[in-house]
Design a protein around this nucleic acid. Structure first.
Lengths: 340, 340
DNA sequence: GACATTTGCGAAAACGTTTGTTATACTTTA
DNA sequence: TAAAGTATAACAAACGTTTTCGCAAATGTC
């Protein structure tokens, strides 16, 4: 009987009504072979009639499985993440799992608090897109434990970690290479958070592509946040204090949107005066009025795969071997870049 | 000791180490006044040193509070919902709650299955943006129970339901009124899901606005899904089989994006030949290349308020009075509509 | 110094399940 | 017909907490 005088029906109530022990009810409901078909039928009917709902937290306490997985992402507001979230949620749903959504807003303190909470709540597994490059706090939280974790959108240095990510380095490289092939030589990079892992790798890819063409870094990399506004402001700054680049590569698509806005507000045309390119291929990039040239990640696929891996790991706890998937980025040529 | 030979430390372990009863440990950790400062300090230190993490599911079993709330939304991929999700998650986080993300993909079966799951998992409250107009299954699931539910983005007819929503009728009305004031008389409506509650009300607002100007419905309302592609296809159909309207009101912004694409692909200019308007004000609507005229909902505010209400209800279960918040939509004039 | 009060803590029940072991009754086998 | 086997179901422990009650020692009161 709870505080409202409302009493939810438990296995014991059914036992009483059926005049059997409650162990029998439990077994009947889970189709245990020890129970006769007759009683099973009787009990199941009773359960239905009485409106029985199993109490999963009680069950979890003993089975040590909560049938929920934690999903930690930096920012649900960036259209990139909802798509991976959809991927994991879809697969989880199909397999009887439920997902706890945790957004860190790129703050490590939030990430840590959520990690602790997820542990307390005994989630069966964790899928995490880490906010920053240093993931030692994550390792230390769960390596000793038995909760599997798979990283997404990030490939950890630690060889024991499972992950699914598209090659960020290659993203940066491909994008830059494409611009170089178009004839650009003055290419600036507008990044997001300075200590973001993926941004860092994308930038490295960018730099290496330049190097492969024998070009130095002409513009010092700029960092802010992964927000349109940040891309906007950084670009304004870039345009004011530097030679105008012929192309700008943004760390991701929402930054690119800000870049475009700033460029045009500066009186320049995209792509006529300056080409701009993004990374991610968020759905709005394909909108005709935008037509952002970008390099695509298989967002839903990342999520689905991560969920698949984690559930596989949950079901086979003895198999500790890390599984690593690196997916291929795809160049998507649209209309924000031109050859010169 | 779990299946991996890894044993997480429990309150009993601490009790043993501290040479006190485990009741004492429990009380010490929760700062119960019965326990001396001295033992509290000792036990807390021990807990920390031993790496104790409370098992919330065990706690929940007895306190009947899981400190988690369920969030059911139709589609995380529509930028509208992540913003309300962010609102609830932010407030929940600040108050020690965690949120279970459930997306229904507008399917009532998913909604129902999730509802059942949330009940089984003993969430403390549920925030739901219902997929369709008929919410009887939701009522029946939780009215008998004690789990508070608040609707978002939807105002139920049932006077006992709590909700926070912006006035959908008014959204439709305001948008249409604006178009009318601009001189438009041939206005078409492109909707989303036929049995969506908000779409229906928005359409009603649209029709009433027309009526207030003495105008009949010139175009039969069109329905599809709440997807850009659907807006696109519906508009194509509209343009082919009807007189060209001077303005099109879309059921929401992502539809509007599809509308624009179709219109321009048809060889018409927005807003020169046809004005188009959306509803929601998703973040991309303000992007300069789009500049979608729309009517805004306070998305984050909706989420935050809903979380606030539900937590308030969780803490005061005796207070059964429904709380209803209807928020004001705001007309956002940008550049996809012109006066004629 | 006798009594009442407070302080600090332990014993045990409870939450709603699952599950290993045991018990009963019935059937088969030799 | 006795021994053995096979269904079926009951008993009880366990999961990791919180919480009610009670008890002893320490403290206060007159």
């Amino acid at each position: 009987m709870n505080r409202d005088g409302f009493m939810s029906v438990t296995i014991k109530d059914i036992a009483k009504a059926a005049n059997v022990s409650y162990a029998t009810v439990s077994r009947a409901l889970s189709d245990h072979p020890d129970i006769s078909e007759e009683t099973k039928k009787k009990i199941k009917k009773l359960a239905k009639d009485m409106g029985y709902t199993p109490n999963i937290v009680a069950r979890s306490l003993i089975t040590k499985a909560t049938k929920t997985i934690g999903l930690i992402i930096p920012d649900i507001t960036n259209p990139f993440f909802p798509e991976v979230a959809q991927g994991v949620e879809g697969y989880a749903y199909d397999n009887g799992y439920t997902v706890l959504l945790c957004t860190t807003n790129w703050q490590i303190e939030r990430e840590e608090r959520y990690l602790k909470a997820l542990r307390s709540k005994m989630v069966d597994g964790i899928i995490i897109a880490p906010a920053i490059d240093d993931i030692s706090h994550i390792i230390c939280h769960f390596n000793g434990g038995d909760t599997p974790v798979v990283f997404v959108t990030y490939s950890p240095d630690n060889p024991d970690c499972s992950f699914v990510a598209t090659d960020d380095y290659k993203c940066g490289f491909m994008a830059t290479e494409y611009l170089l092939k178009l004839g650009h030589r003055n290419i600036a990079y507008i990044g997001g958070l300075e200590n973001s892992s993926s941004d860092r790798r994308r930038f490295e890819g960018h730099r290496e592509a330049l190097k492969s063409y024998g070009l130095p870094l002409r513009y010092s990399p700029m960092h802010g946040q992964f927000k349109q506004m940040s891309g906007y402001e950084l670009t304004k700054e870039l345009l004011i204090y530097n030679d105008i680049p012929t192309a700008i590569l943004a760390g991701n698509d929402v930054l690119a949107l800000g870049v475009i806005q700033a460029v045009e507000e500066f009186g320049l045309k995209v792509p006529d005066n300056v080409s701009v390119m993004g990374i991610d291929d968020i759905s709005f990039a394909s909108f005709d009025k935008i037509s952002l040239t970008t390099v695509a990640q298989p967002k839903g696929e990342i999520g689905r795969l991560a969920a698949e891996i984690i559930i596989q790991k949950i079901n086979n706890p003895q198999d500790k071997a890390p599984v690593k998937k690196v997916l291929e980025p795809r160049l998507i040529i649209r209309r924000t870049c031109r050859s010169i």
